[in-house]
Design a protein around this nucleic acid. Sequence first.
DNA 1: GATGAATGAGCTTTCATTCAT
DNA 2: AATGAATGAAAGCTCATTCAT
Lengths: 186, 186, 186, 186
Amino acid sequence: MRTKDIQKQKRIKDAMISLILKEGINGASVAKIAKEAGVSPATIYVYYDSKEDMLAEVFSEYAHSSYRYLSRYLCSDMSGEDLIETLIRSTYGYACEHEEIFSFVEQCSCCPTIQESVFAGDCCMDIFDLIHAYQRKGVIRKYSDQNITAVLFAPVKYMAMNRSHYPDPEESLEELIAMMQRLLLY
Amino acid sequence: MRTKDIQKQKRIKDAMISLILKEGINGASVAKIAKEAGVSPATIYVYYDSKEDMLAEVFSEYAHSSYRYLSRYLCSDMSGEDLIETLIRSTYGYACEHEEIFSFVEQCSCCPTIQESVFAGDCCMDIFDLIHAYQRKGVIRKYSDQNITAVLFAPVKYMAMNRSHYPDPEESLEELIAMMQRLLLY
Amino acid sequence: MRTKDIQKQKRIKDAMISLILKEGINGASVAKIAKEAGVSPATIYVYYDSKEDMLAEVFSEYAHSSYRYLSRYLCSDMSGEDLIETLIRSTYGYACEHEEIFSFVEQCSCCPTIQESVFAGDCCMDIFDLIHAYQRKGVIRKYSDQNITAVLFAPVKYMAMNRSHYPDPEESLEELIAMMQRLLLY
Amino acid sequence: MRTKDIQKQKRIKDAMISLILKEGINGASVAKIAKEAGVSPATIYVYYDSKEDMLAEVFSEYAHSSYRYLSRYLCSDMSGEDLIETLIRSTYGYACEHEEIFSFVEQCSCCPTIQESVFAGDCCMDIFDLIHAYQRKGVIRKYSDQNITAVLFAPVKYMAMNRSHYPDPEESLEELIAMMQRLLLY
DNA sequence: GATGAATGAGCTTTCATTCAT
DNA sequence: AATGAATGAAAGCTCATTCAT
């Protein structure tokens, strides 16, 4: 018997993500995904039970990838200013560097039939471990986790999604960082 | 005759928006929309050239409806605190009261095939006329319009979309308002 | 708007019956039926909700057609011998003349997923009105309706289905008639 | 090794027969049969050349199993009444006790692509050896083998297939036995 | 011998749209 | 203007079968 081909599964995922970006969730049909991945449509059903299942599985795999990415840039002896700057810059950087995945995740997040189970707020534990430490040290203000998540990430993501409309993104980013530092630090 | 037409078109729009909330953009087929609206599929093509056209037209009609809604609650002699509270509360209120439209707009905004032309930043002129006045009076800090838009609306929208995950939405809302007042007012 | 085309629906039915005979219920795919009927596969779904529905509807339409056919050869002043001869000969005759429909019905009758609702015993009322009259007159023996149905029709149908294996069908038919006359008449 | 093979093949046969009762010949796909039998789809092709081959082989194995079953209850010194009662009761009993096999055989018998070669009339030799003896002894009337087969088995099989529609099967069975005794015995 | 992976062909059904009235 | 009928194209998915191990 043949063994499951991890590269093949990766090709399927990539094909799906890439197609969803090009043509929306509508346009990413199983047949097109299969063609782009270089496999038969039937093969996709070896790896996933249904298209819905496939979407949900890949979405939940990538939904929090930006937070995992972030973690790599953090360390516990940063100043408060650096922490906030890093969080925002890295989020923006991730959106630019992994444009496809970022946009894929945003699209899935808005679709009520997919989103359902995955709530970002639940899933950036290590980041909040760090933030809580800074709160205990009296560096970051004691707002609720939910509102910190909302103000730290929603505006910068909004900015990243619409960056083509921004005359000078870098300048806007700097301003946003300054705003968040003033808002969140003592 | 004229009246009848407009009512029919309204029924079609409502059916579409309602279906998109229930089943996502995928699930809202022309046949289903027609059935829900109580008309023939062919009738829809009397009012719109294509499904894509219909989506785009209705989207652009509703894309900024939350800002129009907001305007009704604003007046130029509010205090700065009141202004910000009103902007945030009204945005949240709109999302709850007009759940269908809110979800429809958010979904369309993420879909690359629809969104294309519409950028929120361009479209809330009267609100920014007011904000500029407050800035000139030295009440609101002189951040860029884009960042003010981002921090005022993105977090509260994020909150509205995920409100089922919030233990006490009202409390979170109050905290968010306080945060924004501290951030934006002198 | 166009009106429903009864001829078209008839063509679909005929195509289905003919295909089931040639290739079994398996082989009669919607696509093939459509092709044989000269319509698009989608058109079939204008007339039937699903393939299952189509099968059930056509089956129940033809399931009792042999009994309707029989009725035409019966009259109330026949002798008992003639009545029984006519019932058996007509059943056999129907099977030969309408080979496709007969075989289609037999096939559906054996398929547990289709058969379900249709029970022959319930559906030959006028024939049994006549038989009951003959029973009251003391011509036909007072066996239960179910067993009369079973012995009158099951053997002759069995014979019709396997007639290619019979060396002299006419002779066998005559013998069977004689047997039934002896069994059922006083 | 040999033992294991035969058990495995038995599991495949049983799975197929059981699935056909539950879901019809349509519903019994190779994949489902494999799953129900606890083997790989590929394994089925170790034992059979094709699905059609498998169906035909298993059908021909079971097609006359009811007659083999019958033989066990017969002996040559029964009275004519007992012989007929035993033949009918055993046929009915077989249909009830081996519902799956009975339904499988009936379904295959109606399916033109499978049935083809097998004609019941050819295959109950020992039963007819016995019946011929009773005919020679002047106990059973000298009807042709074919018609005796038809009247002895077709009605009781019809009854067994539709037994859910019978208010009192035992009573009907008794009546049918009495009818056949009167028909076939001197 | 036995298997899970893989597949081309085909399945049933729905799609957005147009036709004829 | 309005419609139910009609459709080619495509959707998601399963089929019987074969491949590679």
